[in-house]
């Protein structure tokens, strides 16, 4: 097979790679770019551990070809913290002990961030349904849902206005 040359943006960084035409974005991220924060739990879109955002849309990196990344803007867990400043969700996950083994955590964080960017005041039910594609086997979801709701509450507080605008552009 001939490899395809791809130019894309990952967490705001211009990135070039070559990949096989049938290689998934997840394999490219993990095996070619060393970005192993996105995890493979199933490879079939059923667990959400490889959740990434492509052009503002939450997707499973295992269900997208690397070749499809051409010209897109990709956000992964590795870009979630702004330098040394954690995203509020990351901090709340720590505060609420919303992780045990932690393998599903990157996917949950990426998915929850995508929710809060669309809906800053979700109900518990909305959080649970939005995150239904992210499997966690350790926590029973309780502390994860609490962490997301608590983050939303904090982010709604006016302090938000003083914060610098989100670094990543989100297309809805």
């Amino acid at each position: 097979m001939f490899q395809i040359q791809i130019s894309t943006s990952i967490n705001g960084d211009d990135t070039e790679f070559s990949c096989e035409p049938d290689e998934t974005l997840l394999d490219v991220l993990r095996d070619r770019l060393g970005m192993t924060g996105s995890k493979e739990g199933c490879g079939t879109g059923d667990c959400g551990a490889c959740s990434v955002v492509v052009d503002g849309r939450l997707v499973c990196a295992c269900l997208m070809l690397g070749a499809e990344a051409q010209g897109r803007e990709i956000e992964t867990i590795e870009g979630m913290a702004d330098g040394t400043e954690l995203h509020p969700l990351q901090q709340k996950f720590l505060d609420h002990a919303a992780l045990q083994c932690g393998v599903c955590t990157p996917g949950f964080l990426v998915a929850a961030k995508s929710l809060l960017e669309r809906n800053d005041n979700p109900t518990e039910e909305e959080v649970r349904y939005w995150l239904a594609g992210n499997l966690c086997r350790c926590t029973g979801y309780d502390k994860i849902v609490r962490a997301v709701l608590d983050t939303a509450k904090d982010m709604r507080i006016p302090a938000k206005a003083n914060k610098p605008a989100a670094k990543k552009r989100v297309k809805a």
Binding site: V54, R57, L58, V59, C60, A132, G133
Partner: peptide
């Protein structure tokens, strides 16, 4: 159809 992630595609 599927999850939020699936519905994005």
């Amino acid at each position: 159809i599927g999850s939020t992630q699936i519905q994005g595609r």
